[in-house]
Design a protein around this nucleic acid. Sequence first.
DNA 1: CTCGATTGTTGTACCGCGTCCAACAATACG
DNA 2: CGTATTGTTGGACGCGGTACAACAATCGAG
Lengths: 184, 184
Amino acid sequence: MSTGRPRATSRDTIAEAACELFLERGFEGTTVADITQRAGVSRSSFFNYFTSKSAILWAGLDEAISAAEAALRAGERVPDVLGRLVDELVPDSLAVGIVHGAAMGISAELAEERAVRTGRLARAVADRHAADGMTRLAAEARAAGEAGAVFAAVWAWASSGPPRGRLGSLLDEALRAVDGGAVP
Amino acid sequence: MSTGRPRATSRDTIAEAACELFLERGFEGTTVADITQRAGVSRSSFFNYFTSKSAILWAGLDEAISAAEAALRAGERVPDVLGRLVDELVPDSLAVGIVHGAAMGISAELAEERAVRTGRLARAVADRHAADGMTRLAAEARAAGEAGAVFAAVWAWASSGPPRGRLGSLLDEALRAVDGGAVP
DNA sequence: CTCGATTGTTGTACCGCGTCCAACAATACG
DNA sequence: CGTATTGTTGGACGCGGTACAACAATCGAG
């Protein structure tokens, strides 16, 4: 199982150095070279641990989304998948980014990345709805609301200082808001 | 009003050359240098006409979204703004991209850009809802659904070959789907 | 201990997007 | 005529990301 040269660093080491720098100089103001220099590794090595600079913040959530995509493709029901998504979520570095977003000067950058993830999740949900017989139009519209509810809940959760409530109940509230527009 | 050197090219000239190349080699397979070469201008000039390569496709929609943002900030009601957004929309190059998305090999690229725009619109809508007294959580969730409905309608409209129906009625249908999930 | 096989690390070269800037060209106006 | 204004161009640069070949450190087999 363990042959070959042992790793000289770790994702956490790099992520830690990166988050420090993000708080000091902002996200855009920090280059990959800066990160690797502080972490004490070469720039090449960085890409052995993260596929991109933004992946430092989003790796955890991206994994959870991938799992949700797979579950949806496998035919699981939408509410169940979304519930599990937020339950299994470990926001790690991302929570730091959300909370200090303004300080890190990445509110805009963060909003954009959030939108991309919302879109990814929405697409998977929409495919599920469509497979269940919904119109493509209706499926995409509803999916956008449901995916948006997930991220609204995650953001609200991260933004509220500890002790934080259950993420699951925030999600329920958000999902009710999507439906309940006509019935306030 | 008109002093100084006259323009030697136009946005349309560049956009036309670009769309040709997108169809030939795909979006990612086309570099800015390729575009300017075919259009007969320098690479520097490109950025006097478009802020980025993707702006070629999205300029029209981005303008419409900016107008919607302003209207929302000015206090206009959400349904009115969304209705006007799709009414005033001239999809121009974007429609080409949507229709030939697969051929251009930009389905993924297109989905991502779409998500970013959906997020931008959703944010503006959410701010409006929040200003109207909604919880931040509820405002973001509902806004995501409404913004998603807009884009679902635009995509459905572009994807359906001519003669296309009214975009406005597609939007209404999509918005009903957001609400009506519980009442099919 | 030595020899591969395997895995991690590093430097370097490269590409494309986007920014910046200084030089130059073409028009209108006084 | 100059002169101000606006457009065009080329070049240099920084950054993110990819590709790859060279090198280092470990393990197991003989």
